[in-house]
């Protein structure tokens, strides 16, 4: 194989990676360029071009993939740099959550290989799903179907809209009253519902009452916010404290005994409570993260 054949083969390698309409033009130009570079090098070194010289030239010039990439316009960014970290956290968090929920089956006797080839590998659907969603978002942006709707906020973020806040607050009170009256309401339902939804007496006597106290505390805190028309540092911190207490209470409910006498009802309720605990935990993380990114005064140098 002579030097020209080596150059020809390299150029064809580059051309394979280029769009069809540009291939020939770029290939011809590239071959001419490399031939002239080789002639120059041979002249500088005062000897005829040989295999080592042409291979050295191509090595210095770059890989076919790298050269072809330079001829292409910049590609679409699927996950922008500012979202890479949250994408990684969301992906790993989703996989971690699925593993945390399914891995205990291995400790209950399921073979580890069976878990790995079902939920272990199967949980990778989540990052794939996120990438697909990111691709859809890129498509929507590129087609101009959605424009960024961001506007600077004219009011401080601690201020509340009393009407919306009041409606939310009212629904919270109605829900809490309903849950408090649930044992009595179930007793009034026709058979077999009272048997299906019968609470565990120990749960009602010991583990359920603290929730009423937490709801009352939350009502007082939200009432103060409603009256002041805005959140303040004490009401924010109290809300975080109440959420932590709710998390601890829900964990106690999940860990210690049954909530309902019927097993299927109990399993369903425990699933619902686990989900509620997850939402509260996520809300807490979000609130604490937002607090962390506040502007703090600088450290002024002295002396």
């Amino acid at each position: 194989m002579n030097a020209n054949d080596v150059i020809e083969s390299y150029v064809v390698d580059v051309m394979r990676r280029l769009p069809g309409k540009d291939r020939n033009g770029i290939g011809l130009e590239l071959r001419g360029l490399l031939t002239e570079m080789l002639d120059d090098r041979a002249q500088r070194e005062g000897r005829a071009a040989d295999d080592a010289m042409v291979l050295g030239l191509l090595h210095d010039f770059g890989t076919p993939a790298g050269i072809a990439a330079r001829y292409r316009p910049p590609g679409l960014v699927i996950i922008p740099a500012e979202q890479t970290r949250s994408f990684a956290l969301l992906s790993l968090g989703g996989i971690g959550l699925q593993w945390a929920l399914t891995l205990p089956r291995v400790f209950q006797g399921q073979p580890a290989s069976a878990w790995w080839f079902s939920w272990g590998l199967g949980s990778l659907w989540w990052p794939g799903f996120l990438v697909m969603m990111a691709l859809v978002a890129v498509g929507v942006r590129e087609l101009g179907l959605a424009r960024p709707a961001w506007r600077p906020r004219g009011v401080d973020p601690d201020r509340i809209d009393r009407k919306t806040f009041g409606i939310g607050f009212a629904w919270f009170v109605i829900g809490a009253v309903f849950m408090t009256c649930l044992p009595w309401i179930i007793g009034q339902l026709p058979d077999p519902l009272p048997r299906v939804f019968a609470f565990d007496p120990a749960f009602l006597r010991w583990r359920a009452p603290p929730v009423v106290l937490l709801w009352l505390l939350a009502f007082v805190n939200l009432g103060v916010v409603y009256r002041q028309g805005r959140w303040s540092p004490p009401t924010r911190w109290l809300e975080i404290g109440i959420h932590l207490a709710f998390l601890a209470l829900l964990a106690w409910w999940l860990a210690d005994g049954a909530l309902f006498l019927a097993r299927s009802t109990n399993d369903g309720a425990r699933g619902g409570i686990a989900l509620a605990a997850l939402f509260i935990a996520l809300d807490l993380v979000l609130k604490l993260y937002r607090r962390r990114t506040r502007i703090h005064p600088p450290k002024i140098a002295t002396g």
């Binding site: 770029i26 360029l33 570079m37 010039f61 050269i67 330079r70 001829y71």
Partner: peptide, 10 residues
């Protein structure tokens, strides 16, 4: 670099 110049020309 040639690898920069030629794509720029195109």
């Amino acid at each position: 670099e040639e690898g920069t110049l030629y794509p720029l020309l195109r």
